[in-house]
Design a protein around this nucleic acid. Structure first.
Lengths: 206, 206, 206, 206
DNA sequence: GCTTAATCGAGACGGTACGTCGTGTCTTTTC
DNA sequence: GAAAAGACACGACGTACCGTCTCGATTAAGC
């Protein structure tokens, strides 16, 4: 969920007009992330974020349209601070690589440090389509492109049929994890392995 | 989550004490469902429901612990008003039946009458684990049992391997639909067909 | 300035609709009066009054349209708590009686307990004509009637000419005190005496 | 109350340091006067003045300590633009001259162009004793001196007793007008005449 | 049928947070 | 260096809802 976003490296706001205070911006994102982990999305308030960040409320309202947007930027900042290697592993064995990646995804979803904030962001997006669209564009689409690239590589190597539907494949592989996470069901590495095995069989044999 | 009202098969009152007004109850659920469709979950308020239903706020607080719970009951009432035939079709062809059922699911998810309320309920559950647990118990588990029964029937008929993991199969089949719905992506009957075909191939060949 | 207002003894709000909390009302008026004495009108805030009174802000906004109106009611309450004798003294000597009354007025205007609140109320009325009108009707007019009655009594007793302009007389007698008080000039009993002596001479000799 | 601008007779700058922009200063005073006439003192804001004057807020804060001070200077500028003849008329008849002057005062107080700004300034001074002191010193005292001079001239001419209290006389003459203006009562030339007649009678006969 | 106790519509209450406005200070850029 | 511009921390505004708490007025149960 957080690998490194190549797109839009610096929105270029160093122009004359808005002389934004970078320290305040970071304090706000940090406070928002911390607070949502402590109290959850429903009890996350702009006032609370401002107080924790040592910032006036107006400074938040000036730059973000909603608490969901603040939360989203907090995620974005986290993702951009992440590793600089944006590619999925490609050892030659698709099945082995997918097992690795899906097990890592499971580990992340289960990590209590990320569970609450991610649930909060999901809740925010569920009823704010603008936010959902921005998430899709800024985080989901780049990630999907990496996945597609890995699967295309496997297809070119003959591990998958030439006419395989890559987007369908991605959905079949990752959505079961997301779904179980949302439902609060048990999410284990073994489950990830089973998904990989079954879906790859289906894709090859279809 | 206390003081839940009895589910459909028990229209009588719990005990002698509370003489609950059934008309008010229905008005509240109807108002909640309508309002959430109009303004979304974030702007749904107890006061708004009470006003729309022509009811005192206390009448809501007396019987439900949160607006999420009201919403949940509104769904429950809807579900109980629905079909009297709880079983999935079993024509002998698993693939044909699943196509039918998944296409129906797609149609429902796409229907604007249900989209907003369902997103709202999802948002409510995302940050209220008690609500999520009750949803799981009252709506999800029974539905899952029906799905499991149909797949077991197919397994017994030889359409699936004897050692097939039914829960995995259910997740592989339905989660891609839910996932796309959540993400706001395009959700078509053709997608449902592709999921059925590929997953069944995987299950048979694994 | 505070003698006892005969008009409107109980606005009769004991009807069914608004069940107003009398304890909160008194707490608000008390807090407003105390606070305006401590910080002045400019720094008097609704939030401050609410906090001091141990009351929600909405309870103030529900019953008063502005902080000036709260202040006005605080004065009204004070005036109504005052003595039950609404008449000005009538010993037979107009000059002696006026000296007494104007000296009392001077004493009140100079009293630091009343100076700040009265300045505050004056400031509120200066830019709120509605408030000024209510002040005129509820406090000023009744007081003026008492003054007029005493002067009429003196006229009937032959102490003033038969064609004396009573309203002019009242203005000539009391406005110099108010004027000096507003300007922050020195306000002494001797000044009151001089005003009485000169104005009475003018009224008699005109 | 620091950093006051120089009064009329010294148009040059105070010292070499501050190179004050005279155009901005006038724009600020004009804007303040206009705005207070439009929205009243309570809704007069520094930001509003700055915006209307096309000036940065800091330019106001640099030279004035409060919005009341700006308003006061606006009045001062107005007064200094006024007549070059500072003396009250002296035709030989005190009564005729006072009638003239008080009728002029009435006309000014009734003029809607001046009513609002003057109420605003009064409100500002009511709760800012520093401002009141400056008003007293810069506008009230000089005016009072003119009045005293005219009354002294009358005393020396035998129109008033030799031991007349000039300050008392001034208060008796002008405060009724101010008082009625403040109270919003009717203010007519006839009232001014009646005041003059009665007060002069009192002063002569005392 | 009469009593009585819980439920009902209504809405005031002490609170929390909202999103906006204005304060007075500060910094950056321009003249 | 003053000035226009405007971001900033702060505090108050007036509003919306929260969840709790009275109020009569139904209203159905059990006497």
């Amino acid at each position: 969920m957080a690998k490194r976003i190549p797109s839009a490296p610096e929105p270029a706001r160093e122009r004359s007009g808005p002389r934004r205070n970078e320290a305040s911006r970071r304090a706000i994102l940090t406070a928002a992330f911390a607070l949502v982990g402590e109290v959850g999305y429903a009890r996350l308030t702009i006032e609370g974020i401002a107080a924790r960040a040592g910032v006036g409320k107006q400074t938040i309202y000036r730059w973000w349209p909603s608490k969901g947007a603040v939360l989203f930027d907090a995620f974005l900042a986290l993702a951009e601070d992440g590793d600089g290697d944006p590619a999925l592993p490609d050892t030659g064995s698709l099945e082995a690589d997918l097992r690795l990646v899906l097990r890592a995804t499971v580990a992340e979803l289960v990590d209590p440090r990320y569970d609450r904030p991610m649930r909060a962001l999901s809740a925010a997006m569920l009823n704010d389509s603008g936010l959902a669209a921005e998430y899709e564009q800024r985080l989901e689409a780049p990630m999907r492109e990496l996945k597609r690239a890995r699967l295309a590589s496997a297809r070119d190597a003959g591990e998958l049929p030439a006419d395989v539907d890559l987007d369908l494949a991605i959905d079949l592989l990752w959505s079961p994890l997301q779904s179980r996470w949302l439902a609060g069901g048990e999410l284990t590495p073994a489950f990830a392995d089973a998904v990989v095995e079954t879906v790859l069989a289906g894709l090859r044999g279809s």
